[in-house]
Computed example of a mutant assay.
Amino acid sequence: MKLTEHFTLEEFTHSDIANRLKIDNSIPAELMPNIHLTAIKLELVRKALGQPIIITSGYRCPLLNARVGGVSTSAHTKGLAVDFHSAYGTPKEICQRLIDTGMQFDKLIQEHNQWVHIGFSPSHNRQIVLTAFKQGGKTVYCNELI
């Protein structure tokens, strides 16, 4: 099902881990407005980058979220966040570009210099920018791009 010009519902629900573990990652009807909002915002991200973006993790049902080690309050479980990458550049370059263009987001995270997490809010985007990295086997967050 096509959500916007460049994004489909399947991109938001696809998960190799869910498939392997036979987890139903279908989006509940009450979360569809959030999915549509996120898809519309991702069109703005794509435009800012001038490149397609590849969603690597979109919606996660609570069981899938727990299995991948996500926090229980993850915006992924509400349909309000995605992890992605793009041919535009490195995760840091992508984040910097989105900041420089004035992109509105709730949370933007350069994750382990491997992908970008972006989350949105239907009411109040906080413009939180973080860098995640491993330290002593645990994920640590820094309140800036590094």
Rank of each mutant, 00 (worst) to 15 (best):
I35S: 03
F12E: 00
T77V: 09
L31I: 10
I53M: 05
K47R: 15
L42K: 00
L9F: 06
S74L: 06
I53R: 01
A39V: 13
S72K: 10
A48G: 12
L44V: 09
L37K: 01
H14M: 06
T13R: 08
F12A: 01
T8I: 08
G50C: 13
L64H: 00
L9N: 04
V68C: 05
S86Y: 00
H85L: 15
I17N: 03
K41F: 04
A81R: 00
N65L: 15
S72G: 09
C61N: 14
M32W: 13
E30F: 10
D83H: 08
A48P: 07
I53S: 04
H76C: 12
L42S: 04
E43T: 09
I17Q: 04
V45M: 07
I23W: 07
K41C: 15
F84H: 09
A39M: 11
G69T: 09
H6G: 04
H76M: 14
I54W: 07
V71P: 01
R60F: 07
K41Y: 04
I54C: 06
T13A: 04
V82F: 06
K47H: 15
G58E: 02
I40P: 03
L64T: 01
S57F: 11
S86A: 13
E11Q: 15
L37H: 00
Y59T: 02
L44R: 13
L21P: 05
R67K: 14
G58K: 01
I17W: 03
I35F: 05
I54L: 11
D83Q: 07
S57Q: 15
H14D: 06
I35K: 00
A48N: 13
T13N: 05
E11I: 07
L21A: 06
V82P: 04
L64A: 03
N25A: 07
P33D: 14
V68F: 11
F84T: 08
I23T: 06
N25W: 12
N34L: 08
I23G: 05
F84N: 10
K41E: 02
S57Y: 06
S74K: 02
V45Q: 02
I17P: 03
H36Y: 14
A39D: 02
A81P: 01
L31Q: 03
P62F: 02
F7C: 01
T77Q: 09
S26L: 07
T8H: 10
S86T: 12
D16T: 09
A29E: 15
I54F: 11
I35V: 15
D83Y: 05
A75E: 14
R67W: 08
K41G: 02
A18L: 05
N25P: 14
L44E: 11
Y59I: 02
A29Q: 13
L9E: 10
A29Y: 10
E10N: 14
G79V: 02
L21V: 03
R46M: 11
A81F: 01
K78G: 13
L64D: 00
G69L: 12
Q51M: 11
G70Y: 04
A87Y: 12
S57R: 03
T8M: 12
H36S: 12
L63T: 13
H14Y: 13
Q51Y: 10
I27Y: 08
T77D: 08
F84K: 03
P33N: 14
